[in-house]
Design a protein around this nucleic acid. Structure first.
Lengths: 233, 233
DNA sequence: AAGAAAATGAGAGCGATGCTCTCTAGTTTG
DNA sequence: CAAACTAGAGAGCATCGCTCTCATTTTCTT
């Protein structure tokens, strides 16, 4: 399967990559809105119509970039997660958080592509769901390990879960294969939203005039969310 | 100043409004990306070039819509805030949260315009800052009133504030004219980010397969954040 | 090995966009 | 009333996404 048989297939795979690379470069320069197939073709020295042999339309190219971005972010988070001692769950939690933020600030347009407003009339295809779940999965597993070690002690209980929410949380636990009690899982979801909410606000300028630069605030909320979730010190 | 002198000025003011209205209608139908000046001009029965007498370019039109959207959201939040008994701070908190979510779901494209990824190469002009602060200001004032009544009791303290963050929080308190202790103000910021982070995730499809529909989750986190901030029951 | 089939790339072209320029008709101001 | 200003229309430019056709090259089948 991995082996590429004919020369044509090899050339096709390479050109597909080169197109994505050129597109990603332009994405970083002018943003998704201005990304133009013709400009990509120009950069590669080919006719614009030839691009349509590789991507049926502009949206499909963007979708490919979206998936790549999710994977790159997932890679960055997992690589960072491997740095601290595996048993130091809080250090791993914080390291992941900062890795996500660092990646977002290093690739703002790619971040905007996956966590900004989706292209209108564009529904995220099934293929994006799995890669999009990598970061929350990391966080869930950390909490789960703390839980199995009996070391998960949330800062406060909060209101009890209504049945609907408990059911959804159980479904997520099942889907992700992370058997965490519903209230704990819900708290991780809150922390997950806080993580990306903070980064989005920072990148999209909502923090301007408030907590900008946001380093201190981000560091603080990362810790606070670890407390909320209940990771040990 | 409010009085419009000449017939020409009156006509200009009206046409400016009609252009914005038509643009807002199209925004709701096709989204910001596809919003076309020519289509707006067509709808109004005028030449596309005539639009440029009113808005120097497409971005300026969008900026006008952005400001209107912030104001509409602020109006919705303030109107909702006036519903519960003024002394029931927790009810007001929850009502504001739900009003913001309801407005966002009723006007997803306008929400995406102000809380999605900003148009690339587009910096939010100064004129958007004040209207953008209306919702967080409401939340801050609620917390402040609870504080002056001695009724603000956060669910947990969390880590102590580093000096940088304390300074920024103090600056916000000063700017917003809400003299709230820095740790309390920081907690309100967390809740504010949680509010918009949750709505963005819901609207932009990140919750798909997890907490979707998000009613139960949203209700729960609203309450949880009220606990975190320390509003009385 | 030879011929059929499939994939690839180039070019022209369509309808549409944002925006500029020029010209005309009308309004306001001194 | 005349000069200055303003609003609108129309033509035009460069660009875009995308389609269609045609020639060339590669692969598959016999």
């Amino acid at each position: 399967m991995g082996a590429i048989r004919t020369a044509r297939e090899r050339a096709r795979a390479e050109l597909t990559q080169e197109i994505k690379n050129a597109a990603r470069r332009q994405l970083g320069e002018v943003g998704a809105q201005q990304l133009s197939l013709r400009a990509v073709a120009r950069e590669l020295g080919m006719a614009s119509s030839a691009l349509y042999r590789y991507f049926p339309n502009r949206d499909e190219l963007l979708t490919a970039l979206i998936i790549d971005a999710y994977e790159a972010l997932g890679d960055a988070a997992e690589a960072a997660d491997a740095t601290p001692p595996p048993g130091d769950l809080r250090a791993r939690w914080c390291t992941i958080h900062h890795a996500v933020r660092d990646w977002a600030r290093a690739h703002p347009h790619e971040y905007a592509l996956i966590y900004g407003s989706p292209v209108p009339g564009y529904a995220a295809p099934q293929t994006t769901i799995a890669p999009a779940g990598r970061v929350p999965l990391l966080l869930l597993r950390l909490a789960h390990r703390a839980h199995t070690e009996g070391a998960l002690h949330p800062a406060f209980d909060g209101p009890p879960l209504p049945p609907t929410l408990a059911g959804q949380a159980a479904a997520v636990a099942d889907l992700m294969d992370v058997p965490l009690p519903e209230p704990d899982l819900t708290r991780v979801m809150v922390a997950w939203i806080q993580l990306f909410g903070t980064i989005s606000f920072e990148l999209f300028g909502q923090l301007t005039g408030g907590a900008d630069p946001a380093d201190a605030f981000f560091h603080h909320t990362t810790d606070q969310m670890a407390d909320l979730v209940g990771l040990p010190h």
